[in-house]
C-alpha cells in the first residue's frame, strides 16, 4: 500500500501550476496510482477554479479615465476583446479528443510502461554503472535533474545525502532503506537532513528529481562521489 504522499503545500502549488515540470510530473504520476491524492487534487482544483472566477473583477478594473473612450463608450480593451472573439469564432477547427496511447521503456531487457505524464518528454540514452541504469528526462530545468533510474535485483545506491532535495516516485518494484520499505506509487521527498542507503532486492524503476548531485557520506564510498552526478 502507498504510504508516502506529497505534502499539501506541494499539491497546492501543483494545482496552481507553480511547480517546475519535473515535480509536476512527479505528483501527476503519484496521483495516477493514488486515489486519495487524486481526490484531494480534484477537490482543490474545483475550489481554486471557483475562487478564481467568482470574485468580482470590477473593483480592480474601475474605469477612472474616460479619455480613451470613444462615443460608444468602449475601451481599447473592449475592442481588443471584440476582435479576439471574432478571430476565435471564425475558426472552424475542432479539437479531437486524444486517444489514450501506451508507451513503454526498456531497462535490462525488461519492459516498463511509461507514465502518461512523461509521454511528451524527451528521454536521453540509457547509461549503466553496475546494477544501476539511468535515462535522463530532458526537461532543461537548469540545476534540476530528472531521471528514470533502474536498479537491478540486489542493487542499491551507497549511503548518501543531498545538498538540495531528492524526490523519488517508485514506478515499479520496491526498495528499502533505513526508514523502511517503499512500494510502487510511493512519493518520497528527501532533503539534506536525510541520509539514506536504498537497496532493491527485487529490482525497481524510479522517477527521480534532484537539484544537486548526491553526496556519498561513508568511508570508502566517498571515493564514489564523482559518480554521484551520474546517478541523479
Amino acid at each position: 500500500m502507498i504510504k508516502h504522499h506529497p505534502s499539501f503545500e506541494l499539491i497546492q502549488s501543483f494545482v496552481n501550476g507553480d511547480l517546475p515540470a519535473s515535480l509536476s510530473a512527479g505528483i501527476a504520476i503519484h496521483a495516477d496510482m493514488c486515489p486519495k491524492c487524486q481526490q484531494i487534487i480534484s477537490q482543490l482544483t474545483e475550489q481554486v477554479a471557483e475562487n478564481s472566477f467568482e470574485e468580482t473583477f470590477l473593483d480592480r478594473f474601475i474605469v477612472d479615465d474616460m479619455s480613451d473612450f470613444d462615443d460608444n463608450n468602449m475601451s481599447n480593451n473592449d475592442l481588443k476583446f471584440t476582435d479576439m472573439i471574432d478571430n476565435i469564432t471564425s475558426s472552424e477547427e475542432i479539437a479531437v479528443a486524444k486517444t489514450k496511447v501506451e508507451k513503454t521503456i526498456n531497462f535490462r531487457e525488461k519492459t516498463y510502461q511509461l507514465p502518461s505524464a512523461l509521454h511528451s518528454m524527451k528521454l536521453g540514452k540509457t547509461a549503466q554503472i553496475g546494477k544501476l541504469s539511468r535515462a535522463r528526462v530532458q526537461l532543461d530545468e537548469g540545476e534540476i535533474h530528472t531521471t528514470l533510474l533502474h536498479i537491478s535485483p540486489g542493487g542499491g545506491v551507497p549511503e548518501h545525502t543531498h545538498k538540495g532535495f531528492e524526490l523519488t516516485v517508485l514506478l515499479d518494484g520496491s526498495f528499502h532503506d533505513e526508514q523502511g520499505e517503499y512500494v510502487k506509487g510511493d512519493f518520497i521527498m528527501l532533503d539534506s537532513s536525510h541520509q539514506h542507503h536504498p537497496i532493491s532486492i527485487q529490482g525497481c524503476l524510479c522517477y527521480t528529481v534532484a537539484n544537486d548531485a548526491l553526496h556519498f557520506t561513508q568511508g570508502i564510498n566517498k571515493l564514489l562521489n564523482p559518480i554521484g552526478a551520474f546517478i541523479y
Binding site: 471557483e50 467568482e54 470574485e55 470590477l58 478594473f61 474605469v63 463608450n73 480593451n77 473592449d78 476583446f81
Partner: peptide, 22 residues
C-alpha cells in the same frame, strides 16, 4: 489597464456583477 465590458453588446450584467457563479 481599462475594461468596461458591461457596456458591451450583450447583457451579461447579472453574471458579472454577482459573487455567485451561475
Amino acid at each position: 489597464m481599462q475594461t468596461n465590458l458591461l457596456s458591451n453588446v450583450t447583457s451579461a450584467k447579472s453574471t458579472l456583477m454577482t459573487d455567485k457563479i451561475d
